[in-house]
């Protein structure tokens, strides 16, 4: 059991939890993830590490409130307990020794990318951060991230829907202005990862995407998270979660993510009907 020290709604659908997990905090590195189990009936779900404090023995996660498990996590208050936190899991990405790195964070991925921006900056890289969100109201941690970036670009859905720039065009412009870009790192929804990988392929840039397939144990034991990269099968939990998005079989990836769509709806319906009532009673 791990105690919740801070529970915060960052923007309308993105939440932040600070959890007590001293050993995990000591070992956590940028780009890794944790398995979090909300309660004794809960799933094990992978969440990006968004920060840690080794002295206080805490780790932070930032997540999108989307399904049954994240609903449960989002409703936690300071002092509550989660069933378990395990990690840190996965490998941190190979970072270029020098040059400019373009970080693309969408939605909950802005949180997960923050430690990478910090690490890159501290290593002496130039960091350009592209933050993608539905609208300015969905953007968070801007000041924190700007501290570790040499350029900060915002991209909103309305830019896409209206006459504004498209993501591909924006990427090309960034590439033109930042001639030194040696790699792109992306965390966010699958569609963003896919789009940026397309753009990366067109621009000839190494595009490392943080995959978020369905996982069960997260330690390489079950193979639920298998992905095809360059024609070979990998387990995203132990071989990844970072892969070159230009080589991923995206059709398979999208299909496998949808494997339990109906069950996910059902679980969410149950949580919303029972869990929130219980919460309401307690207050």
């Amino acid at each position: 059991m791990n105690r919740v020290l801070v529970s915060e709604r960052l923007v309308p659908n993105v939440y932040r939890l600070v959890l007590e997990a001293p050993e995990v905090a000591v070992s956590a590195r940028a780009g890794q993830f944790l398995m979090v189990i909300p309660d004794s009936r809960g799933e094990r779900i992978p969440l990006n590490v968004a920060d840690w404090d080794r002295e206080r023995g805490t780790v932070e996660v930032v997540f999108l409130n989307l399904g049954a498990s994240t609903r449960k996590l989002a409703s936690l208050r300071e002092g509550d307990l989660v069933e378990g936190v395990a990690g840190p899991l996965g490998r941190s990405p190979d970072l270029p020794v020098s040059g400019t790195v373009l970080l693309v964070g969408g939605c909950y991925g802005i949180g997960g990318l923050y430690p990478l921006a910090r690490e890159l900056k501290e290593r002496g890289n130039r960091v350009i951060f592209l933050a993608e969100a539905r609208s300015p109201a969905f953007l968070y941690w801007v000041e924190r991230i700007k501290r570790y970036s040499d350029g900060f670009v915002e991209f909103f859905r309305q830019d896409c829907l209206e006459a504004g720039e498209e993501l591909g065009g924006l990427m090309a412009r960034i590439k033109r202005e930042q001639a030194e870009i040696s790699a792109i790192l992306v965390i966010g929804c699958s569609y963003l990862l896919f789009r940026i990988s397309e753009a990366g392929a067109r621009l000839g840039l190494k595009t490392m995407v943080n995959l978020n397939p369905i996982m069960v144990d997260g330690t390489g034991m079950c193979g639920a998270c298998r992905v095809s990269v360059g024609g070979r099968t990998f387990f995203a939990c132990v071989d990844g979660p970072w892969f070159d998005g230009r080589e991923l079989d995206w059709v398979e990836y999208f299909d496998r993510r949808k494997a339990f769509l109906r069950e996910e709806e059902k679980a969410l319906a149950r949580v919303e009907s029972e869990f929130w009532i219980k919460r309401g009673e307690r207050r």
Binding site: A68, A224, E263
Partner: peptide
């Protein structure tokens, strides 16, 4: 491993009382 872990460790047979399908 995945099939049995979902059922045994995560109690998937009791879905949706347990969250793992």
């Amino acid at each position: 491993n995945e099939y049995l872990t979902r059922v045994n460790l995560m109690k998937g047979y009791a879905f949706p009382d347990y969250d793992t399908p």
